[in-house]
Amino acid sequence: VIAMPSVRKYAREKGVDIRLVQGTGKNGRVLKEDIDAFLAGGA
């Protein structure tokens, strides 16, 4: 999974398994917005 360390930390704090999140950034990078969208109700 491609993600910046700050995004990985954010996901950990929110209790999200970053491997389950679909990245929308360049080359499938997971963004902070992707974590929020995942929490809001889905992949």
Rank of each mutant, 00 (worst) to 15 (best):
D17G: 02
E13I: 11
L39Q: 06
E13P: 01
Y10G: 01
F38H: 09
A40S: 12
G42R: 07
L20F: 11
Y10N: 01
E33N: 10
G15M: 08
D34V: 00
F38P: 01
P5T: 11
M4K: 15
A11T: 01
E33V: 12
R29D: 07
R8T: 08
A3V: 08
G23P: 08
K9Y: 08
P5W: 06
G41K: 09
D17H: 05
V7A: 05
R8E: 12
R29V: 08
K14P: 00
P5H: 12
D34L: 00
G28D: 05
V1Y: 05
P5Y: 07
I35G: 00
L39C: 04
L39Y: 06
Y10P: 01
M4N: 15
V30G: 00
R29I: 09
T24Y: 03
F38I: 07
L39S: 06
V1G: 08
D34F: 00
K14N: 11
I18V: 07
V30Q: 02
K14F: 07
V21F: 03
A11F: 01
K14W: 07
V1D: 07
R29A: 14
A37S: 11
R8Q: 14
K14E: 05
K26M: 11
A3E: 05
V21I: 12
A11E: 01
K26A: 12
R29E: 15
L20H: 11
D34I: 00
F38W: 12
A40I: 12
A37K: 14
D17L: 06
V7N: 03
G15D: 07
K32T: 08
K32G: 04
Q22R: 15
V7F: 02
G41D: 13
M4Q: 14
G15W: 05
G15L: 07
A37W: 10
A3G: 05
L31N: 08
A11Y: 01
M4Y: 15
K14D: 01
R8N: 06
A43N: 14
A3C: 08
G15H: 08
R19G: 09
I2H: 09
Y10F: 04
D34T: 01
I2K: 07
D17P: 06
R8A: 09
V21Q: 01
E13K: 13
V1L: 10
G25M: 03
A37R: 14
D36H: 04
I18S: 01
I2W: 03
S6A: 13
V16S: 01
D34E: 00
I18Q: 01
D36K: 05
K26E: 12
L20I: 09
V30P: 03
K26H: 12
V21M: 04
G42M: 15
E13F: 10
G41L: 14
I2Y: 05
P5R: 14
G15I: 04
S6V: 08
A11L: 01
K14H: 12
K14S: 07
L31E: 09
A3Q: 06
S6F: 09
D17M: 05
G28L: 05
L39F: 07
D17Y: 04
D36N: 07
A3D: 05
Y10I: 03
G15C: 08
G28H: 07
I2S: 09
V7Q: 03
K9D: 15
G42H: 14
R19A: 11
I2V: 12
I18Y: 05
V16T: 03
R29N: 08
L39R: 06
V16Y: 01
V30N: 00
V7D: 04
G41M: 15
I18W: 07
K14G: 03
V7H: 02
L31P: 00
T24H: 06
N27D: 13
K32C: 04
D34S: 02
A11W: 02
I35F: 00
A3F: 04
A11H: 01
A11C: 07
E13T: 09
A37V: 10
Q22N: 12
G42Y: 12
R29Q: 14
L39E: 05
D17V: 04
D17R: 04
G42F: 14
D17T: 04
G23N: 03
V30W: 02
R12Q: 15
G41Q: 14
E33M: 12
A11V: 01
I2P: 08
G41V: 13
N27H: 12
E13G: 08
T24D: 02
M4D: 15
A3P: 05
V16H: 01
V21S: 01
D36W: 04
V7R: 01
L31F: 08
I35H: 00
L20A: 10
R12G: 08
D17E: 07
V16N: 01
